[in-house]
C-alpha cells in the first residue's frame, strides 16, 4: 500500500515541478530581456531610446518611429477588421440560412489555419502592386498594405469569438424580444450587441494581441523604413520587424541592444492585454475560448 501511495505522491510532485518549470520559463523571458537590455537602462537614458528618431549614423538610436509604426498598423487593421468581423458574425449567427451560415463558419475556421507568412507572400505579389498602382505611391509597401493583410489575419479570431458570444445569449431572451415583435435590426441593437458586449471586447482584445505580435506581415509588406510615417501610404517599420532586422548587426552595439527594448515593450503590451482579458467577466465564453481559439 505504501508503495502505491508513494507513486501517487511523487506523481503529483512531478506534475507540480513540470508546471512550476513552465511558469519559471515564462517569467525568465522577461528577465532575460531586461538583463540583456540593461546597458540601455543604465548608460544611455531609456527615455531617449523611447522618444528619439532612428539614425545610427548620427548617433540616434530611438525606436519612437517603430512604436508609431506599430500603433498605426495595429489601429488601422482593427478599424478595418472590426466592422468586417461584426458583419460576418451577424451573417453567420442571424442572417444566413443554416447551410450558408455553416459554410461561412467553416471558411472562417479554416482561415485561422492560414500561415502568416502566406499572407505576407501573397501580399507582396498581389496586394502591394495593387496599392502601388491604385494610389500611385512609391513601392506600395505601406501602412495601408500591412493593415489590410493584418485585418484579414485577425478577423477570423474576432468572428469566432463574436459568434460564440452571440450564441451564449439565452434563448429565452431571444424569444422574449421576438414575442414583442422585434425585427432583426431591433434584436441586434437591443439584445445581441448589449448582451454580447463582453464577448465583443474579448474578441477585440485577442485580435489586438495578435496584431501587435505579428512579425511576418509587417516585415514583408510594411516597407521597413526607419523614418517617422506621415501618411497611410508611407512605409514603416514595426517593433517586431525591427527585432527581426537588427539581428544581423554587431552584438555589442547599442543598435543591437535596442531590440531588447522592443522586446520588453512588446512583452509588456501583450501582458497588459492578457491581464485585462483575465479580469473581464466573460464566464461561459472562457472555457470555449480556451478550447481552441486564442
Amino acid at each position: 500500500m505504501s508503495g502505491t501511495l508513494q507513486v501517487v505522491f511523487s506523481g503529483r510532485r512531478l506534475l507540480f515541478l513540470v508546471t512550476a518549470g513552465g511558469v519559471f520559463v515564462t517569467l525568465s523571458i522577461l528577465v532575460f530581456m531586461i538583463v540583456l537590455g540593461l546597458p540601455l537602462f543604465t548608460s544611455n537614458s531609456f527615455s531617449l531610446i523611447l522618444t528619439q528618431d532612428w539614425a545610427p549614423d548620427r548617433g540616434f538610436f530611438g525606436i519612437f518611429p517603430f512604436i508609431c509604426g506599430t500603433l498605426a498598423i495595429v489601429t488601422l487593421s482593427l478599424l478595418l477588421a472590426f466592422p468586417l468581423s461584426l458583419g460576418n458574425a451577424v451573417l453567420i449567427h442571424l442572417l444566413l440560412p443554416p447551410v450558408a451560415a455553416k459554410f461561412l463558419h467553416r471558411v472562417v475556421k479554416m482561415m485561422t489555419g492560414i500561415p502568416t507568412v502566406i499572407y505576407g507572400f501573397v501580399g507582396i505579389f498581389l496586394l502591394v502592386p495593387f496599392v502601388r498602382e491604385w494610389f500611385d505611391s512609391g513601392s506600395g509597401m505601406s501602412i495601408l498594405s500591412a493593415a489590410l493583410l493584418l485585418a484579414l489575419l485577425i478577423s477570423p479570431t474576432m468572428i469566432l469569438v463574436f459568434v460564440e458570444s452571440f450564441a451564449a445569449i439565452p434563448k429565452s431572451q431571444v424569444r422574449a424580444v421576438a414575442a414583442l415583435g422585434g425585427n432583426l435590426r431591433q434584436k441586434l441593437i437591443y439584445l445581441y450587441l448589449p448582451g454580447a458586449q463582453n464577448g465583443i471586447l474579448t474578441g477585440l482584445l485577442l485580435a489586438t494581441g495578435r496584431a501587435l505580435g505579428d512579425t511576418m506581415i509587417a516585415l514583408m509588406v510594411a516597407g521597413n523604413a526607419t523614418a517617422q510615417p506621415e501618411s497611410l501610404l508611407d512605409p514603416v517599420r514595426t517593433l517586431t520587424a525591427h527585432i527581426a532586422l537588427v539581428m544581423a548587426a554587431d552584438f555589442d552595439s547599442i543598435e543591437f541592444k535596442t531590440i531588447f527594448a522592443c522586446g520588453i515593450i512588446l512583452y509588456l503590451w501583450t501582458a497588459t492585454l492578457t491581464l485585462t482579458l483575465r479580469f473581464l467577466p466573460y464566464g461561459v465564453l472562457k472555457s470555449r475560448l480556451n478550447r481552441g481559439l486564442s
Binding site: G22, T26, I29, M33, G213, I243, L266, Y267, T270, T274
Partner: peptide, 17 residues
Amino acid sequence: LTFDLLAGVPSIVIGLF
C-alpha cells in the same frame, strides 16, 4: 495566469529569448 501570459507573448519575442 502565467500560461496565459506566455500564450500572449509574440513569437518574435520568444525567438529573441
